[in-house]
Each structure stands twice: as C-alpha cells, then as structure tokens.
Design a protein around this nucleic acid. Structure first.
Lengths: 327, 327
DNA sequence: TTGAAAGCGCTAACAC
DNA sequence: GTGTTAGCGCTTTCAA
C-alpha cells in the first residue's frame, strides 16, 4: 500500500541524464534522438508515469473539468453525461464528476470543492449556482457553463434548448389534433426548463383559445406521469396532454391506456419532450419534441474551448418527432 | 482568464501569521483560537481555497478515485454510476470519470491516465484490464476494483452479482411455467456476466431435459432483443425465453406481442435480468432477476475502505421479482 | 502554539 | 541540445 510511484528523478538517474531531459522527453521539448531513447527505455523499465498533479501545480492548468449534476440515472441526464464524458476525454480533458443528489438545492459546496481541485471549467447539468459562487468563478478565471439554465448575466456561458419553441410546437400539434381541452403536466421540482415549457405551452393555448388545466406534482418520473393521468382523466372531456418530459409522458400514457381506459390517439393525444430512447419503444411510440443531445454537447464543448468572452448564450434548436400518440 | 487563486502565503501575510499557521488552520492542526480566527477572516476576505493538487503532492493522497466504464447511458450502468458517485462524495472522495466508449476493447490507456492523476483507487464498471496493468496497479499501491468481472487472481478486489444463481432462478421459473422449448438471448458483446448467465441457464435447462436454443447478436440493447424475437418466434413451438438483460427482454417482449402476435404469458413466458426501472412499467411488468444495486455499491465502497488485502471477492445475491410475464 | 526551513514532483528560464 | 537553478502551493519536521 505504501508503495510509491517512480519519479522523474529516478528515471533521469537510470538513464544517465538530467531531470529536465526527462521532463522534455514527455512534453515534446527538444531532445536528441539518443537521449529520448535512453529516457524512454528507463521510464519503461521503471514504469514511470508523469505526475499530473505536480504538472498542474506549475502550469496552473489542472486539465480537470468539473461536472455537477443530479438525477444521473434518468434517461435524459445519463445520456447527456455519457456524451459529455466522451467529448471531454477526446479533447484530452478529465471529468471530475460530483453528484448533486445530496445537495439538490445548494450546489455551492460542490463548486467550492471543484475550486480546490483547480478545475479549469465547471459544467452544471442541473441546479442553479448562487450568485456569489458565480462571481467567485469569474474572479478566479474558472469558466462556468450552465445547461438549460438561463441567468441574467453576460459573464457566464449558457447552453439551453429552445424550450419555448418546443412547447409551442407541442401546442400546435395538439391544436392540429383538434383537441378541445388539454392538460399540461410537470413535476413539482419546477426546474427552469419545465417552467418555461409549461408556460409557453399554456400561453400558446391561450392564444388559440383552448382550455388548459395545469397539473404538477412529484418528482420528474414515470410514476408522477402515471399519477397525473389517474387524477386528471376522470374528466372525460380532456382529449389532449402535453407532458414536459418524456419520462412523465410515458407514465401518463400507460395510466391513460391501461388504467383509465383511453385509446391513444383516438380519444386522447399525448405529446412529450426530450425524445429519450424509451419514447421510441414499440409499446409507446411517443410523439415528442426532440432535444438533439449531440448538438447540445457540441455547444458545451465549444463554450469550453472559446478562450474569451465569446458566445455567451447558445440555444440548441428542437424539433417535433412524429410518432403515433397524437392524432 | 489569467486570474489566479489566492495562495496560503497571501492569507498568512494578511492575517499577520506564518504560512504554516494557515496550513494548520485548514487541516485541524493545533492553533490558538485567536490565530485561527485571524486566518479564517483573512481567508474569507481573500476567497482562499486550499489547493488540493499541491496538497496531494505532499501527502501522496490525491483523494481521486478513478471510475472507468462504457455504456454510461444504459439504465443499468447509469444507475450504478449514480449510486457510486453519491457514495464516493459522501466519503469525501472525488470521482474522476473516464468514459470507455472509445476504448471498448482496451481500457489500458484509460487506467494509465488515472495513474498519472495519482488516483488512489480505480473502479472498473465494464471492460477487462490487461494483466500488465493490474500488476502495475499493485506495484504502485493503487487499489483496483472490478465489477462483474471475475479474474483468477487474489490480489485485486472483485464485486460480482451471483449470475449463475440468478440464471438458475430464471431457468427454474420457466420450468415452473411448464415451458417445453426455450430460448436464451444475449448480445454479441459477450461480456463475462452475460456469458455466465447464458451458460448457467443452458446447463440448468439441460439437467431439466428442456430444449434450449441460444441466440446472440447486436449490442446490449432494446433493439437487439426486438430483433431476437422477430427471428426466433417464427418457430411456434417456443414457449419460453430468458433474456440476459432487461433491456433486451423489453425489446423481446414488444416484438413478441406487437410483431409476432404472441400472448404473454399465455403463449410465451419471458424472464429478464437486472430489474431496471423500465421493467416495472405498466406496459411491461417484466418478471426478472434483480441485482440489488445499492448492495453492490456498498460492497464496492467497502472494498475501497478496507486498508489491507481483505475480502477480495464479494458476491451480491440476486432474487426473483415476480411480475406478469411468466406463467 | 508558532515560525523557519526543507522538500513533494514537476516545469521553465537561463546559461552553456 | 543539455544541465543547472529556481520556483509552483502546500505540509511537515524541527526548534524555539
């Protein structure tokens, strides 16, 4: 257990060169063929690995990117994390993952921890960092990237999908399905995204002169969608539903069909949001608004790269995926 | 951008004490009340954060735990990662996540990278590290923890669920359902877990004298399960199926019912493995073998703690979850 | 309890 | 091209 890694000094000694020759060999400095070969040989025999901690200490570049988020096992977020971690690795960046499950409301301590590791940038998948923390990021030159979080400041990068437009797409789709009375269901967590979607939807329906009842409760889950349908569909006049996430839509769909005896889409049209993999499963075939996650990921990585105060706010466009749950 | 973090030296200067007094204040060393107060005050005003990189340089404890895995957005793995990242954080450990998506077959470079960050331990969610790397872990005192990977060595920690027993449970369940000819479906990725499950199942069925045809193909996905059912169920005599993962089972189920016109469980009994959230969704209600993930996570964290060559191999027990897809 | 000094493993500026 | 030297920010003896 107490074994310790080989240092550059030991390699230098074995190769019969100076400590800096070793350093240069591993950092693309100029070294003669012969020295390089000797160093590589000695390093190989000894099992030498550069110490990135020490390296980062000097260059003040840790290569660490902090990622904080909650709900990491939800289909949507997990895909986001999957793509993000691949993208980071490809760019030679390391991903320091902090699960915000225990800190839903206050992710400040998590971000502070990331400071201590001298993370070069911090990506927030969910949760809203307090202003003081944002200021501290800027003061210390740590780039902050917020996903699906819209703040009223110009000094932090935000990547968000076009929730309002998506919700309008959903609204228009239900109009097209000739719905007379619709419901919009969201969770009680009231994330900014969900709120924007629900509001934009209601507003649009208002303009169209269609009655909408809003329901919200529980976590953002299949179960909450299920519950929503059970409670709402005793009202036989409801003929349309917009669930602000697919996960809820799927639960809603199951309860509507299997519990409340509705035929979809004949009696009831349902539209979701996100386009998670399960939405395309044969039992569901959910009509939904897609957020292209690869695009979102690209934009996050772009924000990471941009050295200066470039594109502060990037929005990823959404589109309707037509399947079978809307008439 | 070029701003830099405050150092302990600056704090010391402002507080009018020595550099070491600052260090002691933040590490529970013995300091007088008054000094501690002065230091804390100065640190607060300056926005000081200890530099863990430098800290780890001295103490040779980085506090970083490397996690490598692929398929991070699959329901099963993502849940695993979710629980794991929570558990690590609770123990004051940081999670350095490396996505093995690009390196399915060879995770060696990823682990080497983790060496460079002086990770204290490495947790491998998927993929099998080459022997040379394992040796290097040991040589450097890096604890290695393999999940659902059984190696024939006594010097590395392994946590695996009882695949064979689970498969036998599945077999017995299909026997109880009075199946005459069954199929076992797995993916073409042939992970050790899947192989163990498929083999144990076939073997058991052999003992019971029941004919079993093995199918494998595609990635471990809904789509592959779907495809399996389409190809297999043209044989009308098949009346039972064991899918080695729930994801495949769900696809199988959908194709069986919606594409191949089977009634489940009347004509066909289906059993899965894992018990992912979707297995309990109303449209599926899949009878399956559950792997208790919180237990698995606990065991991984235990392996992390155990300072010495303690429990090298821990197996988490599985159990049958009875729902509606087996007669 | 406190400060001075040494050193963790590395890189970079400087001479040679 | 190569070695020497001086730190990076921190912890940790060692005296005081």
């Amino acid at each position: 257990m107490a074994q310790t890694f080989v240092t550059a000094e030991e390699v230098a000694k074995r190769a019969g060169v100076s400590r800096s020759a070793v350093s240069r060999t591993f950092n693309g400095g100029s070294v003669s063929k012969s020295v390089r070969r000797k160093v590589l040989k000695a390093a190989g025999e000894l099992g030498y690995r550069v110490n990135r901690l020490a390296q980062g200490l000097m260059s003040e570049r840790s290569n660490l990117i902090g990622v904080v988020g909650a709900n990491l096992s939800s289909p949507f977020i997990s895909r986001q994390l999957d793509l993000l971690s691949i993208g980071l690795l490809r760019r030679g960046l390391q991903c320091l993952l902090l699960n915000a499950a225990d800190a839903r409301k206050d992710i400040a301590p998590l971000i502070e921890l990331l400071f201590e590791f001298r993370a070069q940038a911090i990506i927030v998948l969910s949760g809203e960092p307090p202003t003081s923390i944002i200021d501290e990021c800027i003061a210390n030159g740590v780039r902050l990237i917020l996903i699906n979080q819209r703040l009223d400041r110009t000094d932090t990068s935000m990547v968000l999908s076009d929730d309002s437009h998506g919700a309008e797409l959903a609204a228009m789709r239900l109009v097209k399905a000739d719905c007379k009375k619709v419901v919009v269901v969201s969770s009680s967590s009231q994330t900014p995204s969900q709120v924007r979607r629900a509001n934009a939807f209601s507003q649009r329906m208002g303009i169209e002169g269609i009655e909408v009842v809003a329901w919200s409760g529980g976590p953002t889950s299949y179960g909450s969608g299920y519950k929503a349908a059970c409670e709402l569909l005793s009202d036989k006049t409801i003929d349309g539903a917009f669930c602000v996430t697919d996960l809820m839509a799927l639960g809603f769909l199951d309860a509507a069909r299997l519990e409340m005896g509705r035929r979809v889409p004949e009696d009831l049209s349902v539209v979701g949001f996100d386009d998670i993999p399960q939405a395309s499963w044969k039992s569901y075939q959910l009509t939904t608004v897609a957020q292209p996650l690869d695009d979102l990921t690209d934009k996050v990585l772009t924000a990471l790269d941009s050295d200066e105060t470039e594109t502060r706010l990037q929005v990823v466009s959404v589109f309707m995926v037509e399947r079978t749950t809307a008439r």
